[in-house]
Design a protein around this nucleic acid. Structure first.
Length: 501
RNA sequence: GGGCCAUUAGCUCAGCUGGCAGAGCACCUGACUUUUAAUCAGGGUGUCCCAGGUUCGAAUCCUGGAUGGCUCACCA
C-alpha cells in the first residue's frame, strides 16, 4: 500500500485538507489583499499602533492558550507575532484557526498593538487559509541540517534557515552591484550562444548535446571568451557577459558542473587596466554589499583596499620553492628539476608548463590575497598576448583570494597568425588525447584577420567570489540548486492518487 | 576514480561489548483569554539507507551496493 509510505502526520494533514473542503473552506486560496509586510508592521509601529493591517505569510510557531492563541507569521520581510482570541473571531473561525498546522500559509487582518511583554503584535479580526501545508516544517529550533536534504530540497532549506536566505540575497546583490559598476563604465551587457559548434576559450571538457533539425552535435559553452572578442572586432568596444558556463569535470567544494562567470572585454586596454578594473570593482561591491573594505573568511581577514599586490609568477615560484626558473634553460632541464621534486612531468612537458605546474603545486594555496599573479608562460596561455620583453611569457594574470583562483585575465592576443599557431599546438595536444585542449576555431581566426584593437579581457568566477564575500566554504552553498546525482527518493515525493484520496 | 566518515520518527539527534526501537521539537487528545523554545496531563507515529551473510537473536558484527559529506586526483 502506497499509504504506508506516508507517515502519520502526512496522512493527517491530507485528512484535514479533505475535511476543510467538506466544510466549504478552500485550502488553496487566491491572493490576499496585503497592506503591510511583517517588517513594516514592526518598523512602523509608532504610526500603525491601533490601526488595522493585513498581512500574509507562513505560520511558523503557535502558542495556544485555550480561548486565545499566539502565533508567528513569516513573510519575505521577516516575522511578526499575531494574536487571535475567541471573543474576537467567533467559535467557527477560532476552531478553524486551531485546526491549522505549522507551515500553513494564511492571510490575516487586525489592529496593531503591543503585548504586555512589549512584542508588536497583530490582533487578528479576520483570517483566511491561503495554502495548506501537507508536510511538516523542519524543526523550529535546529532548522534543517542534513546537507543532502538541504541541497536537494532548497525550498525547505530556505524556509528553515535564515542564514541560507541571507547568502542568496547577498549573491543577488553582488551580481547587481557588478552589473551597475560595469554599465556605469559604459560596458554593454551582451548575450552570446550557449550552444557552440566549436568549444574554446578555456581548457576544459565540454558537455555535448544534439540538435535534431540540423543533425548536429553541439557543445555547451565552456567560456564566453571567443564570442565576446568577436564583438570587440565588430566595434563593440566595451562588452561583458554574465552567464552560465558548463564544464564536464569533477565536482568538489569549489567546482560545480554549471557555474556562473562574468567576462569583460575592453578595447584599447591591457591587462594592467584589467587589474585596476577588477580591484576597483570588487572593492566597490564589498563596500556596497557588505558596507566594508574587509571580509572575514575562514576566520581570517581579506582586505580589498587598494591597491592589491602584484607578483610575477616566476618570482613567486622562486620565493616559495627556491627554484629560479630564469636559471633553468630548456625543457629537458626543467623536466629534471620537476622529477627531482617528485612532480613526474609528462614526456613532452615544456619549460613553461613545468614552471606553471610548480606554481600550481606549491604556490596557489598559499596566496591568501587578494593578489594578482602576473606573466604566465605562453605554453599555458593560448589566447594571451606575448610579452614584448620575453616571448616565453604572456601579459596574463590570475587573481587569488583565500588560495582560490577567482579571476583570469590578459592582454588579448590580437595577432591572427600567432593565434593560428597556438591553436595548432592545441589541436596537436587534442589529437594526443588531451580532451581539454582547444579546438581550431576558424571563424574566430577569421574575425581576428579583420583586425582586433588592442584589448584587455577579464574573467571572474562569480560563484567563488560570492563564496568569499559570504563566508561560504562550499560552492554548493552559493548555488541554489547544485548538481546532484538523482535519488530514487525523488519518487517518494511523487504521491500516487491513492494518497490524495 | 581513490581514501576516510555518515545514513535510526516529518526535523534535530541518542542507542555501549548483539537481547522488546528511544528523547526533544512537530503531531494527536484534554486543560489554559497577553504568550514567545508558552506551560500542564496523556499518546510513539519507524522499510533503523538497500541486498545478502554470521547468529537462538542484528539498528549494532561481516560482505556487496546506493546516496551524501570531507579529502586526494582533475579543473575554474
Amino acid at each position: 500500500m502506497e499509504q504506508e509510505h506516508l507517515g502519520e502526520q502526512l496522512l493527517l494533514r491530507r485528512q484535514k485538507l479533505k475535511e476543510l473542503r467538506a466544510q466549504g473552506v478552500e485550502p488553496y486560496g487566491l491572493k490576499y489583499p496585503v497592506s503591510h509586510s511583517a517588517r513594516e508592521v514592526k518598523e512602523g509601529f509608532a504610526i500603525l499602533e491601533g490601526k488595522t493591517v493585513r498581512l500574509a505569510g507562513r505560520m511558523l510557531t503557535r502558542r495556544g492558550h485555550g480561548k486565545a492563541c499566539f502565533a508567528n507569521i513569516q513573510d519575505g520581510s521577516g516575522q511578526v507575532q499575531i494574536y487571535i482570541r475567541l471573543d474576537n473571531v467567533g467559535d467557527e473561525q477560532y476552531a478553524l484557526f486551531q485546526n491549522l498546522d505549522i507551515g500553513d500559509i494564511i492571510g490575516c487582518g487586525g489592529a496593531v498593538f503591543k503585548t504586555r511583554t512589549g512584542e508588536i503584535t497583530v490582533n487578528v479580526e479576520t483570517f483566511t487559509l491561503l495554502s495548506k501545508a501537507l508536510r511538516p516544517l523542519p524543526e523550529k529550533w535546529h532548522g534543517l541540517k542534513d546537507v543532502e536534504t538541504r541541497y536537494r530540497r532548497r525550498y525547505a532549506d530556505l524556509l528553515a534557515n535564515p542564514e541560507v536566505r541571507r547568502v542568496f540575497i547577498l549573491r543577488s546583490k553582488i551580481i547587481q552591484a557588478m552589473r551597475e559598476f560595469l554599465t556605469g563604465k559604459d560596458f554593454l551587457e551582451v548575450e552570446t550562444p550557449v550552444m557552440h559548434t566549436v568549444t574554446g576559450g578555456a581548457t576544459a571538457r565540454p558537455f555535448v548535446t544534439y540538435h535534431n533539425a540540423l543533425d548536429l552535435d553541439l557543445y555547451l559553452r565552456i567560456a564566453t571568451e571567443l564570442h565576446l572578442k568577436r564583438l570587440v572586432v565588430g566595434g563593440l568596444e566595451r562588452v561583458f557577459e554574465l552567464g552560465r558556463i558548463f564544464r564536464n569535470e569533477g565536482i568538489s567544494t569549489s567546482h560545480n558542473p554549471e557555474f556562473t562567470s562574468v567576462e569583460i572585454y575592453q578595447a584599447n586596454a591591457d591587462y594592467e587596466d584589467m587589474m585596476e578594473l577588477m580591484e576597483k570593482m570588487v572593492l566597490a561591491i564589498a563596500q556596497q554589499v557588505l558596507g566594508s573594505n574587509q571580509v572575514i573568511y575562514q576566520e581570517r581577514e581579506l582586505d580589498f583596499s587598494l591597491p592589491w599586490p602584484r607578483k610575477k609568477l616566476i618570482d613567486l615560484v622562486n620565493e616559495i620553492t627556491g627554484i629560479d626558473f630564469r636559471e633553468i634553460s630548456g625543457d629537458v632541464e626543467a623536466r629534471k628539476i620537476a622529477t627531482s621534486r617528485g612532480l613526474e612531468p609528462g614526456k613532452g612537458s615544456t619549460w613553461g608548463e613545468i614552471l606553471f605546474r610548480f606554481f600550481e603545486e606549491y604556490c596557489e594555496d598559499k596566496l591568501w590575497g587578494p593578489v594578482f599573479v602576473q606573466d604566465y608562460p605562453v605554453d599555458v596561455s593560448p589566447l594571451a598576448r606575448r610579452c614584448d620583453e620575453d616571448a616565453a611569457f604572456t601579459y596574463r594574470f590570475e587573481c587569488f583570494m583565500a588560495g582560490k583562483e577567482i579571476a583570469n585575465a590578459f592582454t588579448e592576443l590580437t595577432d591572427p597568425l600567432d593565434q593560428r599557431e597556438r591553436f595548432q599546438q592545441q589541436v596537436q595536444k587534442r589529437a594526443g588525447g588531451d580532451e581539454e585542449a582547444h579546438m581550431m576555431d576558424e571563424d574566430f581566426l577569421n574575425a581576428l584577420e579583420y583586425g582586433m584593437p588592442p584589448t584587455g579581457g577579464l574573467g571572474i568566477g562569480i560563484d567563488r567570489l560570492v563564496m568569499i564575500l559570504t563566508g561560504s566554504t562550499s560552492i554548493r552553498d552559493v548555488i541554489l540548486f547544485p548538481t546532484m546525482r538523482p535519488k530514487e527518493l525523488d519518487q517518494e515525493l511523487n504521491l500516487s492518487k491513492d494518497d490524495i484520496k
